[in-house]
Design a protein around this nucleic acid. Sequence first.
DNA 1: GCCACTTATCGTCAACCCGACGACAACAAC
DNA 2: GTTGTTGTCGTCGGGTTGACGATAAGTGGC
Lengths: 224, 224
Amino acid sequence: MPGFPAFAVTVDLVVLTVRDGGLAVLLVERGEEPFAGRWALPGGFVRADEDLPEAADRELAEETGLPAGTVHLEQVATYGAPGRDPRQRVVTVAYLALAPDLPLPVAGTDAADARWVPLAEAGPLAFDHARLLAEAVERARAKLEYTPLATAFCPPEFTVAQLRRVYEAVWGRALDARNFHRKVTGAAGFLEPVGATTARDGGRPAQLFRRGPATSLHPPLLRG
Amino acid sequence: MPGFPAFAVTVDLVVLTVRDGGLAVLLVERGEEPFAGRWALPGGFVRADEDLPEAADRELAEETGLPAGTVHLEQVATYGAPGRDPRQRVVTVAYLALAPDLPLPVAGTDAADARWVPLAEAGPLAFDHARLLAEAVERARAKLEYTPLATAFCPPEFTVAQLRRVYEAVWGRALDARNFHRKVTGAAGFLEPVGATTARDGGRPAQLFRRGPATSLHPPLLRG
DNA sequence: GCCACTTATCGTCAACCCGACGACAACAAC
DNA sequence: GTTGTTGTCGTCGGGTTGACGATAAGTGGC
């Protein structure tokens, strides 16, 4: 099969976390043209002997320094319009990563100038990254309804209130604490009680939970 | 940016329809190695000046002869494992297409040997196409719940019973005609009455409907 | 015309789920 | 103890669900 057009293939990451009651995305400042000085999603070329999820894992480790497996990672969509990179034909596979609130940037990584940027303050991005970001965020919002994905924003053990704050941050809407508690503890396989409680700063201690084995929520938590 | 690995990029299509009460997929028989004689999903290389959806549209027109825009087309996922094509490094973007029941293959197209194959009878497929097919089908099943996508399997005007048979075929489960009628006609923007009725062969004539403007269903139709 | 038979559509009912909200429990600070 | 804060359990009316009975509007046989 000769004569097929040659493409470069990259993996770009939309890494989200919950900070200060809102969603934040991991961005890097570009040092080179095109779009020098602009903010962009972290990412890079897929290597010759690498599968796509491997490349995404590697980029994530390089950008965040996190041990692989601690963050949720899933493919979102692929973009390949001619001209989306002015230098050459590039096809980009976008991945969505959800992480607990973590200190960043980690020293000694590729992108020393990586930063968490609140979603609302993300200015114009390089390439078509604004679209990648928007579509990844919408995917995350939708998946919170019918999967236990929100636990990916939490540490291994967490309280119902922490989980609720995740939902409120992602959906941008206040939720009733009582009804949320009922639904979340009632969904089979969503949460597993750890047995311990938190020592908190003023207020009744809360039960700790771990993520349960369910992969989908019945019934789902609807945005309304 | 020199030295990046060169990839070939293809678009593969999972074209589904409802036939004889079950899902069927459009497959072509491969004429060349590798996998000569095996069934495979239709698809082909993305051209040098083409966007990905354009390439999918073009391949669909070549395989089915349908005028563009009559079938629903959406991206599902991208596959790029090294070795998935033994000849060279290929990244494949899978698209899901939903079509009404149509006569195929259309004479004068690329793949004269394209056939509708019932899902259960699809034997071993070339490359990793079994996985592409399975993931696309699961996407279709899930989207029927909360989008008006089922109408893509129907002609422009259809009855509630036709729509119900689509759901039953895709989900592989019988549905109560009365409850289905209530829910489907109650969901805002799902169906628009045409005013006419069908002249049917034994039985009360049914009202005809057109697809409504809604892009999501409230409330959704759950599989249970 | 009358009678089965088929298919479409409307109604009824109990069980369940939802959102709004009241009540209480268990801690800290003073 | 009192106050304030946070977590957890209950209650209530309205809407939705699935199971299923009843009726409407055609066809074909006689």
